[in-house]
């Protein structure tokens, strides 16, 4: 059993458009301990999203090793990657997180359904989470009938409900006002503490960075700094 939730060893990624090459990650080495609440900050183009995509198996690195719970994602075929995402990872994106034709409840139980979890168990788990994060009584609303903050909370609930090893959130507060963003962060923190779920999220909002217990700053595809909230530099 590995001691890291995520481990990256000299990970490199370059995007190519015709003859133009744009290096997105220039040798990232990183370890994430289970239960961490980690923020990745940096300006646009610094490689935050690429890093999250590679950790989440949404994209593949050109070089290096990407291990999630000890599994080398570079070696997994596409089908296995999909299975890993379904069983062990949760995702929260910047916006448009939900399927518009499903209700909040159906969106939240979507991944459970795909996992084949029985209906009673599904409902119980979702209801519990909804109560926990303040979504009670909104179960039957469609995304179009929810505010931006409520939609993001449903997305967090969907990511959490399968009890994953790791939740990856790509700028989850980017489209929210500061009050709603703070409330969402509180929900994420609360879940992190209560369930010991590892959270890795990207942001360029200083307010959100402050809430992280570990903050990695990126610049030009490299880690510029890696600081814990207690002031320890890793």
């Amino acid at each position: 059993m590995t001691k890291w939730a995520v481990e990256l060893k000299d990970v490199k990624k370059t995007y190519r458009t015709g003859s133009i090459e744009v290096p997105a990650l220039r040798g990232i080495t990183l370890q994430v301990t289970p239960g961490e609440f980690l923020a990745i900050a940096g300006p646009s183009g610094s490689g935050k999203t690429t890093l999250l995509n590679i950790i989440g198996g949404l994209d593949r690195a050109d070089a290096g090793e990407v291990l999630v719970e000890g599994k080398n994602l570079q070696l997994l075929p596409t089908g296995e990657l999909a299975r890993l995402r379904l069983q062990r990872l949760g995702f929260v994106f910047q916006a448009y997180n939900l399927l518009p034709v499903l209700t909040a409840l159906e969106n939240a139980e979507f991944t459970l359904l795909l996992q084949g979890v029985p209906v009673k168990q599904r409902k119980e788990r979702v209801q519990k989470l909804f109560t926990e994060i303040g979504l009670a009584n909104l179960e039957h609303r469609r995304p179009g009938e929810l505010s931006g903050g409520q939609q993001q909370r449903v997305a967090v609930a969907r990511a959490m409900v399968t009890e994953p090893a790791l939740i990856l959130a790509d700028e989850p507060t980017a489209n929210l006002d500061s009050t709603t963003a703070t409330a969402l962060l509180e929900v994420m923190e609360q879940l992190n503490r209560a369930h010991k779920t590892t959270f890795v999220y990207s942001t360029h909002d200083p307010l959100v960075m402050e809430r992280a217990r570990r903050l990695i700053r990126m610049r030009d595809g490299q880690i510029a700094s890696d600081v814990t909230h207690a002031g320890q530099t890793l």
């Binding site: 989440g56 949404l58 596409t78 089908g79 999909a82 299975r83 890993l84 995402r85 379904l86 069983q87 995702f91 994106f93 448009y96 997180n97 399927l99 518009p100 979507f110 991944t111 795909l114 969907r158």
Partner: peptide
């Protein structure tokens, strides 16, 4: 396209 991307990200396999 985005919705299919979202579904794929959540773990839906191509056949699904």
């Amino acid at each position: 396209r985005y919705e299919f991307g979202l579904c794929a990200a959540l773990g839906l396999r191509p056949v699904q």
